[in-house]
Design a protein around this nucleic acid. Structure first.
Lengths: 117, 117
DNA sequence: GCGATAGTTAAGTGTATCCTTAAGTGAAAG
DNA sequence: CTTTCACTTAAGGATACACTTAACTATCGC
């Protein structure tokens, strides 16, 4: 059973590291082995495996071992939930700014815009 | 100068804490003082101020002090950049899956197994 | 079987995070 | 002027992170 629903905490935490983002970026171009993920990174293999564990725990990546090769794949579900959270907040905020703009426009109908003194 | 361009590292790191997400959520409903942000949180005021510092360093929140009250406001710019990064990766991945689906459909138009020549 | 390959496990180190309490600072209210 | 209010600063402690090296395990190719 692949770790399905990971809390936002873990997802954002996983995204906060540049090495892990590089790994994800590579995975958007298709599945990859651990060594392939490690190649562009200036760190030891065990370090990469630890990053991979974080990505897996966050549900961003699923892995499966065939023979001696572990193949990693992106899972867009967690990515989608994180994006959704941000989007919801950003939209709420921007709608609020719009309403505020409307209100100010009605309060000063002849003035065209500007900051209140 | 309000901290304008904050690296993704800091933004995702800021988003990874539930207390900070609660604070952001409150701020989508309009500006708030430090104490207002602190009210729903089960922690000391200094702890909240430290979270606020993280949010400010990430560019997610801007603050200004008037008298003895610090007023905090959401800044959608950093939020937008984070969302954009996720969206770009998710779309790249999903486009890839689509292409793969097309390819497989063409390889096995009516049968469900076949070796490429 | 032998050696190279791909990854894993264990242990340790330095730094960052998240929280605390205690003691300030400075504007506002009485 | 004194107290209260809204933070702020400082110091410290527990845990979590991001690495490292060293040693180990399984598979693959010969």
């Amino acid at each position: 059973m692949p770790a399905a629903a990971a809390p936002l905490d873990r997802v954002f935490q996983a995204l906060s590291d540049p090495a892990r983002r590089t790994m994800l970026e590579r995975l958007t171009r298709g599945p990859a082995s651990v060594s392939e993920l490690a190649r562009p990174l200036a760190m030891s293999l065990p370090a990469v495996v630890q990053h991979l564990a974080v990505l897996e725990a966050s549900g961003l990546v699923a892995t499966a071992k065939h023979g001696r090769v572990r193949t990693c794949q992106l899972q867009s579900g967690s990515l989608q939930r994180a994006e959704q959270w941000i989007n919801d907040r950003r939209l709420a905020w921007e709608r609020r700014l719009d309403r505020l703009g409307d209100y100010l426009a009605r309060q000063t109908p002849q003035d065209d815009e500007g900051s209140p003194s």
